[in-house]
Structures are given as C-alpha cells and as structure tokens.
Write a protein that binds this DNA or RNA. Structure first.
Length: 574
RNA sequence: GCCUCUGUAGCUCAGUGGACAGAGCACCGGUCUUCUAAACCGUUGGUCGCAGGUUCGAGUCCUGCCAGGGGCGCCA
C-alpha cells in the first residue's frame, strides 16, 4: 500500500523544482514539504500549506499554490486538486481509487501497511527489566505495554526486532530478597524472628516459604541466603514471565547483569574509558565544592574511581567503582549498552521511567567516552503511573501504594483479573508517555462495559457477525461490484488509509501511543457506517449486499491489524 | 537551588508552526420487528496556567513567572 501523503509530498517537491527550472519560481533550497490531513472534510483528505514558501519565493502564497498545482503530474489517487486561501493545496482522494483499495487491503491481510522503512535491519527494544525480586506491578506494566507496542510497530515498519529484558540478580536488593525468604521460612517452622523493615514484606514470600516447608520440611534450615535467593529468583522469574504472557508479552532474550562481571567485561570497558582519558582516582570529584569535600572527609572515604562525565556536559562526575572496590550500577550499565551497540542494532530503544533520566544521560556520556556513537539508543521515558482509588471517607483520590518491600501494591495479575488483558493494554497505551497516568482501578473496572477497549473490539466483532450470518445463508461476495458502495463506506476507507502514516509517525517519533488514538478514531468512523449500511437485509438488493460484504471484509482486516499492533485480541464474539 | 516533564471542556486526556482547538467519560433528549444497541443520532460544555516575545500565522517555538510530578547517592 502506498503512503499517499508521501506520494503527494514527492509530487509537490517535483513541481516546485519544475517551476524553478522554468523560472516561474526563483531558485531556493526546497524545505520539507509537510502534507497532513486537514481537520475538516471540506478541506480535502490531504493538505499542504504553501504559505511557508512565500518568503523564499517572494511571491503571494496563493499564487505559489496555483503554480505548484499547474506543475503537478497526474496522480492516480487524486485527479484534481484545489487551491484555498491563504495558500493551501487541498487534495481529494478519488472515489474510484478508494474502491480499488478495498481489494488491496484484503490482499494484504495481516501484513496490512507492512512498511519497508527498516529494510530488515536489526532493532532492539529493551523493556520491563525489573529485577526478579517481586511480581510485576502497575508501574512496570506501563513500560511493558509501551515497549511491546513499540516492538510491534518497529516490526510493522520493517525492522527485525528483538525484545530484551535486562536484569540484575546481584547486589544488595537480592541479598535482602534471599534473607527475606529465609526468615519467612523460619517463621513457617515456628521460629520467632522478624523481618527488618527494609526487607521484602510481600505475602508472596510467605506463600513460597510455606511451599518450601511442605516440600522439604525443616531440612533447609542450614541453607545459605544464596540458596533462598536462588529459590526466590527462580520463582519470581517464572511469575514475571507468566504475568507478561497473560498480556501477550514475550521477550526474546534475557540479559543478566552478572554476566558482565563474570566475563570481566565491566573491567575492559573501564579500561577503555581510562585509556581515552575519562577516568581518574580521587577521594572526591574534580569539581567538588567545599561542602562536598567536607562531606567526603566526614565520611572518611578512601579514593574511588570516577568517570569524568562532566566533560560531556554532565553536571558532575560519577563514581564507577566505589572506594570498597565494588562497581556502582553505572559501570555495568555502560558496559551493557556498549555490548548492545556492538551487537549491531540500528535502533536500540530503551523504555524507562523518568526516575532513570539522569542515569540514562550518564550512560550516553559513557558510550561517548568509549569513542562510540550513542545515536542508535533512543529512550522512551514514561512518566509515573499511580494506581488510584476513590476514598469514600475522605472524598478524594488516593494512591494505591506500590512498594514491593512494603508488600503493599497492585500487581499486573490483579489488574488483569479485575479488568482484562485487553483493557490493561489499551489503557496503558492510550496516553502520551509524557503524561502522568492515574490509573483509576475502580473506574477501569466500572467502565469495562462502556469504554474504548470494547468500542474498538466491537467493530471487529460486528464484522465477524456479518460473516457468520452470511455463511449460514450461503451468501458470499463473489463478483462484487464495488461501484455500488456509498459515501459512508468510502469515508471509512479514507480513514483506514491513514494507518500507514500512523505507523510511520509512531516509529520515527518513538510514540507508540499514536496507534491507540487512531484505533479509537477508526472505530468511531466505522460504527455509524455499520448502523446505516446493512448487508443481509430484505431491502438490500443482492448485488449491493455483495459489495457491502466485500467492504466489511476489508474493514475486518484493518481492525485486526490495528488490534494486533496494540497487542490486543480480535474476538469473533463478545 | 539546579535539571527535567506536565498544566487544553466538570473529569481523564489527544493535538506534525497552518484553516473555525478535538475525543472519551459524565450530563440532558431521542433511536432496537432486520448482520448483537458493548451501538447510533442530537444538545450542552473553552481567557489552551499567567505575562511578554519570534512569525504572514502560536495550544505548538523562545524568555520569565505560577502550580504539580520526577531526578539531583561511593543506591539500584
């Protein structure tokens, strides 16, 4: 399928060039040609504001628009164009062309608007990346949904996409996890021991401890914290994968931070940074002010290993290796991204919460310090998600706490159980990553019968209903004459043809949420048509019914594609 | 204090420097003898946080201010 706005952009650029060649327009560098869909139907399907050329050409924009239109080659999708003041070129897609697209849509099927932007080049989306210390929470879920949708869109744009999960099973948090389970195990055996407040308080460790007792009795009493950590980690990962699978998310690769330690990669990376002159040993960083120096002295730190990130624009230098010889999180993080880039991805998307903003900047500085180009790395920062509930007593919304260690959170599993996998995916996707998201749990549950999720899916269901009924009656669309279709059907096809552009924009701007809004708009064009345009009705002549049935087959293809791009199901019935 | 994101209808939010700022929910009033009404049709609703600036044109770009979130660790 062609991207019509691109076709028009190319044609206009050629027309400007032709006008310059003939001397009707003065020579100037042709700027980007932004063709977009105007808000009003009376203004056409595609529009270009030629006003931007007025200054460059030193001519009246209306005159320029007329000149361009006169030079445009014949376009199969738009035989005539209109010029509107103060200088718009408006393009109306021809009805005949739209009718032809119906068979084209059906022919493309599940690969509808499969683009070639990526040319099969490798791309990676790293997302979720939660440490296996507890279940997937609502907070993780936003990143999971956004990341997976981004991956699906990159695939639609023609990239060979890998989904990766980066996790850390070393470090202090996992020490606490192991010990938390060990203490829970002892509690199950009747020992009177308490969990320190900074340990993992969640019920899930109590459950696991009970299972360990059931299976092994008290024979694990002598096991180390590492044993319990491994047991907890294995169970958590199993849980995390099942939770993600429940919303149709599956990673291709799991990258373990500890492998960077085992392979000594972190040290070779540090050496490379050092050789490039970006690393030094000191008790405090080079730009430290008097307060910081005093603070360091008070703490009695031995010299640590610093990365001179300030020379890349960072506000201060960062510790790579603490004075006790243990690397901070930053060093393996840089090593990991170095590894990623060396694996040759053209695009490496990273979905993170905004609380990692500074860290992501430091990693990019680190990549530069290695003499590498961080350009393939694109970070999608999700603003915080708060699960909120209405508090009757106080008469206001209050946040549902999500701290894993406090054991007070809503999990993805809870969310799916209360709503549905499709509802979770849609609601988490249908927002700009830059907007803070208050996920009103009760409201989403309440709206389950009246919300965009079902509004969109119902469009597909309605198509499927027609197909079922047609089959029962032995009616098919063979030999359909699409000339019998009306304006409503064509309006839907017009909207459907925007899908390619939506995919492209979502990919090049790293904005997967755009597909969710498009889905809603598409459904709102569909339903009024369905209401008016009957197929199997006594008053509809057979030849018209055939044409309409063919139309609904195309509509079903479009909705199926859109729903799958969002990771949602396309049910035959609801 | 510094960095960053956000501020658009009663609520939740869209909005490529372009034409008269949109959707969902909520509210109000209509529509099921036809392929499922989880739908459709209609009505109501706005100083785009405030003030300047750039531009032929600003919700969109720049500056300042106000309000809210997040970050500023030899934590991850």
């Amino acid at each position: 399928m062609k991207l019509l706005n691109k076709e028009l952009e190319k044609a206009i650029e050629g027309a400007i060039q032709a006008a310059q060649d003939s001397g009707e327009l003065p020579p100037f560098e042709i700027p980007a040609i932004p063709v977009s869909a105007p808000k009003r139907a009376s203004q056409g399907d595609l529009s270009y504001p030629a006003m931007g050329l007025a200054k460059l050409a030193r001519k009246n924009p209306l005159e320029i628009a007329r000149m361009i239109v006169a030079k445009l080659p014949a376009l199969d999708f738009a035989p005539e164009l209109q010029v509107a003041p103060p200088g718009f070129i408006n393009c109306f897609i021809a009805s005949d062309y739209l009718k032809c697209q119906i068979d084209a849509i059906i022919a493309e099927g599940e690969a509808l608007f499969q683009l070639e932007i990526g040319c099969g080049k490798p791309a990676q989306v790293e997302f979720v990346s939660a440490n296996p210390s507890g279940p997937i929470t609502i907070g993780h879920t936003r990143g999971a949904v956004v990341g997976d949708a981004m991956a699906r869109l990159l695939e639609a744009a023609g990239y060979d996409v890998q989904r990766e999960y980066y996790y850390n099973n070393a470090g202090n948090q996992m020490f606490k996890l192991g010990n938390s389970l060990k203490l829970r195990y002892r509690q199950q055996l009747g020992d009177v021991v308490e969990l320190p407040p900074d340990y993992y308080q969640g019920e899930y460790l109590v459950d696991q401890a009970a299972d360990l007792v059931a299976q092994h009795g008290d024979s694990l009493r002598g096991e180390s914290w590492e044993f319990f950590r491994d047991a907890a980690e294995a169970r958590m990962f199993d849980w995390i994968k099942r939770s993600l699978a429940s919303i149709d998310i599956k990673h291709d690769a799991f990258f373990n931070e500890t492998s960077l330690f085992a392979s000594e990669t972190i040290w070779t990376v540090l050496d490379r940074m050092r050789k490039n002159g970006h690393v030094y040993e000191a008790a405090h960083w080079e730009g430290a002010d008097e307060d910081e120096i005093a603070d360091v002295k008070a703490k009695g730190y031995e010299p640590a290993t610093w990365f001179r990130s300030s020379s890349f624009g960072d506000e201060k230098d960062r510790v790579m290796v603490k004075s006790d010889g243990v690397p901070t999180y930053t060093l393996p993080d840089i090593a990991y991204h170095c590894d990623k880039l060396e694996r040759g991805f053209d695009i490496a998307v990273n979905v993170l919460g905004t609380d990692h903003f500074s860290q992501a900047q430091v990693v990019k500085h680190g990549i530069r310090a290695l003499g590498m180009d961080p350009a393939p790395i694109h970070v999608i920062f999700n603003q915080m998600v708060r699960a909120v509930r209405w508090n009757e007593k106080r008469g206001e919304y209050e946040a549902v706490k999500q701290s894993k260690r406090a054991g007070d959170f809503d999990t993805l599993d809870d969310l799916v159980e209360m709503t549905s996998a499709d509802a979770v995916r849609y609601h988490m996707l249908a927002r700009s990553p830059n907007s803070q998201l208050d996920f009103d749990v009760d409201q989403v549950v309440k709206q389950s019968n009246d919300n965009p999720v079902y509004y969109i899916q119902n469009a597909y269901v309605r198509c499927a209903g027609i197909f079922r009924e047609a089959e029962e009656r032995g009616f098919d669309d063979a030999g359909a004459d699409l000339a019998l279709l009306g304006e409503g059907e064509l309006k839907f096809i017009r909207k459907a043809l925007e899908l390619g552009n939506v995919i492209e924009q979502a990919v090049i701007n790293y904005e997967p949420h755009k597909i969710a809004f498009f889905a809603q708009e598409l459904a709102s064009v569909f339903h009024p048509v369905y209401d008016q345009v009957r197929v199997l009705h006594s008053e509809v002549p057979a030849d018209t019914a055939k044409a309409r049935l063919r139309f609904y087959r195309a509509a079903a293809v479009v909705f199926y594609r859109v729903l799958r791009l969002m990771g949602m199901s396309a049910p035959e019935r609801m």
